[in-house]
Amino acid sequence: MAEQPVEPSFERRFEQRTPGAVATYLFTARMWGRSAMQYRASLVLVMVNSLFMASLELLGILVVFGNVSTLGGFSLPEALYLYGTAQAAFFTSDLLFTGTEYLAVRIRMGTFDSLLIRPVGMLPQVFADQFTPRRLTPMIPAFAALIVGLAKAPVHWTLLRAAMVPYTLLVGVVVFGAVWVLVGAFQIVAADASEVMNSVTYGGQFMTSYPLALYGRNLMLFLTFGLPLAYVNWQPTLYVLDHADPLGTPSFLRFAGPLFAAALWGVALLAWRAALRHHRSTGS
């Protein structure tokens, strides 16, 4: 007979269910969101600022297209659509997952430990950390570019093409989510070098905002087969806009996004676990 462990009196004081990851994320994000709302005037100012800042880049694209009619083989509406997919996916992920960016601060101040003593998962708590509605406004120019681009671009609509639009955004958000996990893992291990990671994240965002054809064959090969950022929005956009891949890749690669996303999440979760283990063994 299996050995029955004796249950001491302290084992259980009442029945408890563990809050799931989504529930944990939602109630934590809600608290931070409400905290941000306590400083309403400041919040509004920052929201207006980030709206302008995000619109500025869009304005830059318009200025460039004042001089040329295509960029990397893309017309203005097509370029706007591509830009919109990258930016909308990025800023959605930024709204949902950027708590990882604050980990360096938590590590330095020692407040990371107060997350470890909670009976809920670490990632949902961290994702929701410092959640603020401030990150909503940069999504406005992003979605505006996406919608205007789609309306003006000569798309030969099919059901599959239409489905590819939300699919592109979803893959983008998931991929950037994995990037935020990597950012978090990096910040736990190297809190004093947290800025280094920013160039990777924001560089990736900037890079996917423009037609990859701009970057020349070598870089395109790298972005398709090395660090396959091409599957975030470039490949699906080629399909929606009915462009051929300048690299001549087979058309099934247009749909390879989820494979890349899954692989990146695998790497990110391993890195996250390694970072937690590192923290547990060093304490700082």
Partner: peptide
């Protein structure tokens, strides 16, 4: 109130 939910206290 948050702790109520986080610890799932009846």
């Amino acid at each position: 109130a948050l702790l109520h939910r986080m610890y799932a206290v009846p």
